[in-house]
Design a protein around this nucleic acid. Structure first.
Lengths: 276, 276
DNA sequence: TTGAATTATTCCGGCATACGGAATTTATCG
DNA sequence: CGATAAATTCCGTATGCCGGAATAATTCAA
């Protein structure tokens, strides 16, 4: 081989091994044969085999009984154990401040927690706002309020149905809602990409919310703005949604799907992690 | 360097790089300095630097502005693919929600990974629960804890023996267990169809677990509930087991006969085949 | 601000070792 | 059962890795 240029080459076997991981993560739902793996990674079969063997020995790759390779469960385990330095609240705070300052309204950050949604943070605007969510730490059933609704809407179908089945009584109990209404609103959310339903419970108030997806396209949270109904003309709403979405997307790109804050929001409410 | 032993060594730089990843995932909330990384991984700083650079270039590691290393975001999106082909987690989630809401306790979904069991998902109940399994991604040896025990118990006999042979020391090391105890408990599991052993390690806590079989009657996972000892009277336990089993069976019917991880080279040819 | 201690990065020579062509074993298929 | 394809092992060689040591950058104390 001739060395034409002086690329800052690193340990080749590491580079190649990682590329194998990428390839494995890339396509197959049920694993990949060695020959395909080699071809896609641009390696000879001998080399791919050697690397795959090492990856397997280290637990980063699993082998299926029919001799196929796939990303290993240990990999999942390692990733889940890795703590991302910033929890969701820290990541989102600048966005909340920006939105609050730009829109002159109150911004909420909502995270799902089982069958509920928890308000993880808020940045107040100049107008006093009443909301379903209430203050930081506030907890409402999935489906009640715009931010909550938007999360519910984007859940995987199975899961969404399950949540609805359980929460419907709670929702009916707390507001002028029935199943038909809820389903209609969910459809609206999925069609428009945001929630702006007026529940009619907080007179003069209205909210607009957009979903935050993690890097695997799962809903994990919602950004929501609470404002006075009169302030939200149709054209302003479009603008608001656009701004919210821009921030939501930026946030989503930075989210690990394993962030503990997404799983146990309550632990992070105090700003300090609770033990256990 | 002297190498007297003739282990089938693999590409060292790959092994070392992966170890760096493990170390990185292990401890730091806000990243790790090179020197610490090197020390914890048992590498010279020069080597650690070279490897870390390669990992960074490949996107598996990020650098913070203050020159610290941390697990990269790409790492997570790849890891998210590491679930079983049937996406066991998605399939089971509604069941976890149902159980958690119905029982008011914390539900765990556990899958086997080689000689270990990994917590794939959990749905928290209102009570804070301590468990062997820990949080999502937590790993424990096969045989430790109820969910893990139930999986071990239902493995094919020769495979089970091999796992026991391997894990017994680890189990003894981590709890008041000896071989006789383990075998007695396995018998109990096979007789009753569930595990409810009180290991006595987590005072006040107890768990009940049932197996999930795929359509070929192989254990692939376990559903487990963690609760306060006082909440689990005998009659309630019967009820709990029944609920768990109902969900486990429903899940099993949806599983295609794909074995997630049999990375341990075991030749069961001519051995006992699961009765079709 | 200065200087010393700590940490990060680069260099480089020697030698271990990873590469890949080819042979061998093992699975898959007609 | 023979043929084809895939997986795994072998092995000589040159390639790229390792780590001691030099250099650069950063932190810290005073």
């Amino acid at each position: 081989m001739q060395k034409t240029d002086d690329e800052p080459k690193g340990p080749t076997s590491l580079q190649r091994g990682l590329r194998l991981l990428r390839v494995l993560a890339g396509a197959p739902p049920d694993g990949m044969r060695l020959s395909d793996l080699a071809r896609l990674a641009g390696e000879t079969e001998a080399t791919a085999h050697r690397l795959a063997r090492a990856l397997t020995a280290e637990g980063f790759v699993d082998r299926t009984p029919d001799r196929r390779y796939r990303v290993g469960l240990d990999f999942f385990s390692i990733a889940a154990r890795a703590e991302t330095a910033d929890n969701l609240r820290d990541i989102c705070r600048p966005a909340l401040l920006r939105l609050s300052a730009t829109l002159n309204d109150t911004i909420f950050l909502l995270v799902r927690s089982g069958l509920n949604v928890v308000c993880l943070d808020r940045a107040d605007g100049p107008f006093p706002i009443r909301s379903f969510t209430g203050d930081i730490g506030g907890r409402i059933p999935l489906g009640m309020g715009q931010g909550s609704l938007v999360i519910l809407a984007y859940l995987p179908p199975d899961e969404r149905e399950e949540v609805i089945r359980f929460n419907l009584p709670r929702l009916i109990d707390r507001g002028p809602i029935d199943e038909a209404f809820l389903r209609t609103e969910i459809e609206k959310v999925l069609a428009s990409g945001h929630a702006a339903t007026d529940y009619g419970l907080l007179t003069g108030m209205i909210g607009v919310a957009v979903p935050i997806f993690d890097t695997t396209r799962r809903v994990v949270a919602a950004l929501s703005v609470g404002t006075l109904t009169e302030r939200l003309t149709a054209e302003r709403r479009a603008k608001v949604v656009e701004l919210l979405n821009r921030e939501a997307e930026a946030i989503g790109r930075r989210l690990s799907p394993f962030d503990p804050a997404l799983r146990h929001p309550a632990r992070f409410l105090g700003g300090v992690r609770a033990p256990g």
